[in-house]
Amino acid sequence: MQLRKATMADFDQIITILKDGANQLAEHGVDQWQGDYPSHDQIKEDIKNGWAYLAVSDDHETVGAIAIVDGPDHVYDNLNGKWLCDTDNYVVIHRVAIKSEHAGKGYATQLLNSVINKIRQSDKVDSIRIDTHEDNKAMQHLINKMGFTQVGKLHGAYRPDETSYVYELKK
C-alpha cells in the first residue's frame, strides 16, 4: 500500500470515494457521514494543507482516501475524556474510506498500517488520534486492532445529536 499526496486534480476522485464510503455506512445502518460532512470545502482544505492522501494498492489502483491532519485539531476541544499524551504534537486521522469494490480485502488495515508507519518516522509527533461514530463497529474494530486506546467521547462535534468515540496511539 502506497500513500500518494492528493492534489486539486484528485478532488473529484476523493469526493467520489467519500460518497461511496457514506453509502456503505448507510447500507450498514450507520448514520455517520449522512449529512453535510465531509463537505467539499473540507476536502479542498485537506488538499490545500497537504493533509489529503489517496491509498494506492500494490497493483497501482486507487482503493481509498484518507486525511492526516496536523494538530491541534479543534474538533477535540470538548473531549469528554483524557488524552494519553498531553501534547499539541499530534496528528489526527480523519475521513478514511475504501472504495466499496475493494471492501473486505484488507485494504483498510493496510492503509492504517501505512499511515501509522509514516507518522512514526516523524520526530515532531508524540501521538496519533482518531475518532469514529458510536455505531461504526467496523471502524472501531479496525482502530482497536491497530493498537489505539479509547480515551473518551465527543458529543455533537460533527452533528448535534451525534456521539463519536475518540482514540489515541502513543508514538
Rank of each mutant, 00 (worst) to 15 (best):
Q2K: 08
Q2E: 02
R4E: 15
K5F: 01
T7P: 03
T7W: 02
M8Y: 14
A9M: 14
D10S: 05
Q13P: 01
I14W: 02
I14H: 01
T16A: 04
L18A: 06
D20F: 07
G21T: 12
A22P: 04
A22T: 05
N23Q: 05
Q24H: 09
Q24Y: 00
A26V: 05
E27A: 14
Q34T: 13
Q34F: 05
G35H: 05
D36I: 06
D36L: 03
D36S: 03
Y37L: 04
Y37H: 06
P38T: 13
H40V: 09
D41V: 04
I43K: 00
D46I: 00
I47L: 15
A52R: 13
Y53Q: 15
L54I: 03
L54W: 08
S57H: 05
S57Y: 14
D58N: 11
D59Q: 05
E61N: 10
T62D: 08
V63I: 02
V63C: 00
V63P: 00
A65S: 15
I66T: 14
I68G: 01
G71V: 05
H74G: 10
D77Q: 06
L79Y: 05
N80D: 11
K82D: 04
L84Q: 14
D86P: 00
D86H: 08
D86E: 07
T87V: 06
N89F: 14
Y90H: 00
Y90E: 02
V91Y: 01
V91R: 04
V92M: 04
V92L: 05
V96T: 04
V96F: 10
I98R: 00
I98P: 00
K99I: 08
S100P: 00
G104W: 05
K105V: 14
A108W: 06
L112N: 02
V115L: 12
K118I: 09
I119T: 08
I119A: 15
R120F: 11
Q121N: 12
D123V: 06
S127Q: 02
S127P: 03
I128F: 07
R129E: 15
H133Y: 11
K137I: 12
I143F: 12
N144R: 13
Q150H: 11
V151D: 10
V151K: 03
G152Y: 03
G152C: 13
H155A: 11
G156I: 15
G156T: 15
A157K: 12
Y158I: 12
Y158A: 07
R159K: 07
R159D: 15
P160I: 11
E162W: 03
E162Q: 09
T163K: 13
T163S: 12
S164T: 07
Y167C: 09
E168G: 02
E168Y: 01
